[in-house]
Amino acid sequence: MSTPDLSGANWRKSSFSGVTGACVEVAAGFPGMLPVRDSKDPQGPSLLFTADAWTAFIAAVRAGELPDQS
């Protein structure tokens, strides 16, 4: 699998993001994968997740299966 060009990606933050800026941004429009980046460092690295991996991650968050890191 080749790495997609994310230079023209349309990044968006969750509507649940607070004023602290501690959130992630995601970009749609990349079939089968989801680019994710740190909103505080938009020029920094991005992570690519398969659609299945992202769905499993969100399900684990909603189920409270991940440890609290705050």
Score class of each variant (00 low, 15 high):
27 A>D: 07
30 F>V: 08
10 N>P: 12
65 E>G: 07
55 T>Q: 15
8 G>N: 12
16 F>A: 09
37 R>F: 03
55 T>N: 15
67 P>G: 05
55 T>L: 13
15 S>Y: 05
21 G>C: 09
46 S>N: 06
52 D>E: 15
42 P>C: 03
3 T>Y: 02
20 T>Q: 05
55 T>V: 01
43 Q>P: 01
65 E>I: 00
41 D>P: 01
24 V>T: 00
6 L>I: 08
37 R>W: 02
57 F>E: 05
21 G>P: 01
48 L>Y: 03
22 A>C: 09
51 A>I: 05
26 V>S: 08
68 D>I: 14
46 S>H: 14
5 D>P: 01
51 A>P: 02
28 A>I: 01
34 L>N: 06
34 L>E: 00
20 T>R: 08
58 I>N: 02
59 A>N: 14
32 G>N: 09
53 A>D: 13
17 S>V: 08
66 L>Q: 04
43 Q>F: 11
30 F>Q: 10
29 G>S: 11
27 A>Y: 00
64 G>W: 06
21 G>Q: 00
49 F>D: 08
2 S>R: 15
20 T>P: 01
49 F>A: 14
62 R>Y: 13
67 P>H: 04
64 G>H: 14
5 D>F: 04
44 G>M: 09
13 K>T: 04
53 A>E: 12
46 S>G: 12
68 D>C: 11
48 L>C: 07
55 T>P: 09
60 A>K: 13
54 W>A: 09
32 G>H: 08
48 L>W: 00
69 Q>P: 00
36 V>W: 02
24 V>L: 06
21 G>W: 02
7 S>R: 11
31 P>D: 15
17 S>A: 12
38 D>Q: 07
25 E>G: 13
22 A>L: 04
16 F>M: 03
47 L>W: 05
31 P>Q: 14
49 F>H: 03
40 K>G: 14
57 F>M: 13
3 T>L: 14
13 K>Y: 00
69 Q>W: 15
13 K>H: 08
36 V>T: 10
69 Q>F: 09
51 A>Y: 02
27 A>R: 04
41 D>H: 14
39 S>K: 08
68 D>E: 10
52 D>A: 15
16 F>H: 06
12 R>Q: 11
24 V>C: 04
45 P>M: 02
30 F>M: 02
57 F>P: 01
38 D>Y: 09
26 V>L: 12
23 C>E: 09
56 A>Q: 11
19 V>T: 13
15 S>D: 01
65 E>V: 00
52 D>R: 14
46 S>K: 04
44 G>W: 04
11 W>N: 00
61 V>Q: 08
28 A>K: 07
60 A>H: 11
32 G>F: 00
10 N>M: 13
24 V>Q: 01
15 S>I: 06
21 G>V: 12
26 V>D: 01
15 S>C: 00
48 L>M: 12
51 A>Q: 15
13 K>P: 06
65 E>Q: 14
51 A>M: 03
39 S>T: 03
